Deep mutational scan, measured.
Amino acid sequence: DSWHDTVDGIELELHGADEELLKLAKELLKRGVSEEEVRRIIEELLK
């Protein structure tokens, strides 16, 4: 799946992010949310 590559990229960027955020990112990508949107959501949550 192409979203796996996206998640791997996000995981590299979010090496400090907790497991729950990564699960959320994967779930959003699986549901068709764009990579940009996922990054934006996670950045908001990390604030």
Rank of each mutant, 00 (worst) to 15 (best):
D18G: 13
K47G: 10
L46M: 12
H4V: 11
K47C: 03
L14I: 15
D5P: 14
I41N: 00
E20V: 07
S34H: 07
E19S: 07
V38G: 01
V33F: 15
G16S: 07
K47V: 10
D8L: 15
K26M: 06
G9Y: 13
D1N: 13
D1I: 10
L12Q: 09
E43K: 09
A25G: 03
L45D: 00
L28H: 01
L14H: 05
E37S: 03
E35Y: 15
R40G: 05
K26Q: 13
E19V: 10
E27T: 04
V38N: 00
G16R: 02
K23G: 03
E43Y: 11
L28S: 00
I42D: 00
L46C: 02
R39S: 05
R39G: 03
H4Q: 14
R31E: 13
V33Y: 15
G32E: 01
E27S: 03
E11I: 15
W3P: 04
L12D: 05
L45G: 02
I42A: 01
D1G: 13
E43L: 14
E19Q: 08
G32V: 01
E37V: 06
D5A: 12
E13T: 06
K23W: 10
L12V: 08
D18K: 07
A25K: 03
L28I: 01
D18V: 09
H15W: 14
K30W: 06
G32L: 01
D1Y: 01
D5V: 10
L28T: 00
E44A: 10
D5E: 08
D5S: 11
K30C: 06
R39H: 05
E37A: 06
V7F: 15
L45R: 03
E19W: 08
L21H: 04
L45I: 10
G16E: 09
E19I: 08
E37P: 00
L29A: 02
E36W: 06
E43W: 09
K30I: 06
R39P: 00
S2L: 13
L28K: 00
E11P: 09
D1P: 09
K26E: 14
V33E: 04
D5G: 12
L28Y: 02
D8M: 15
E20N: 12
L45C: 04
K30E: 15
D8Q: 13
I10Q: 08
K23T: 06
E37G: 03
K30L: 15
L21Y: 06
D8P: 12
G32K: 00
D8Y: 03
L46F: 05
I10P: 08
E37K: 05
E11W: 15
W3L: 10
E44D: 13
D5H: 08
S34Y: 02
S2A: 11
L24V: 05
V33N: 03
K30N: 15
V38E: 00
L28G: 00
K47N: 13
E20F: 11
L22N: 04
H15I: 14
L14K: 03
K23Y: 07
W3M: 11
E35I: 15
V7K: 07
E13K: 04
S2N: 14
L46P: 01
G9M: 13
I42F: 02
R40L: 08
E13N: 09
D1F: 03
H15K: 09
V7L: 11
G16I: 14
S34E: 07
R39Q: 06
S2T: 09
E36R: 06
D18P: 14
S2M: 14
S2Q: 11
D5M: 05
R31V: 11
E19M: 10
I42V: 07
D5N: 11
E37Y: 03
I42L: 06
L24N: 01
L14M: 08
K30V: 08
L46S: 04
I10N: 04
E35S: 12
L28P: 00
D8E: 13
E13F: 03
I42P: 00
I42W: 01
R39N: 04
G32W: 01
L46V: 06
E11V: 15
E27L: 07
D8H: 14
A25Y: 06
E19L: 09
H4R: 08
L24T: 03
I10A: 06
E36Q: 11
I10V: 09
L45P: 00
D18M: 11
R31Q: 15
K30T: 07
L21R: 01
E37L: 06
L28E: 00
W3N: 09
D18I: 07
W3Q: 12
G32H: 01
I10K: 07
W3E: 11
E35M: 15
K26H: 12
E36M: 09
R31W: 11
L21P: 01
V7S: 10
R31K: 14
K26L: 13
L22P: 01
L12K: 10
E20T: 12
L29N: 01
L46K: 06
I41M: 04
L21V: 09
D18F: 10
E43D: 08
T6K: 13
E43P: 00
L28V: 00
E11T: 12
H15M: 14
A17V: 15
L14F: 15
L12R: 03
G16M: 09
R39T: 05
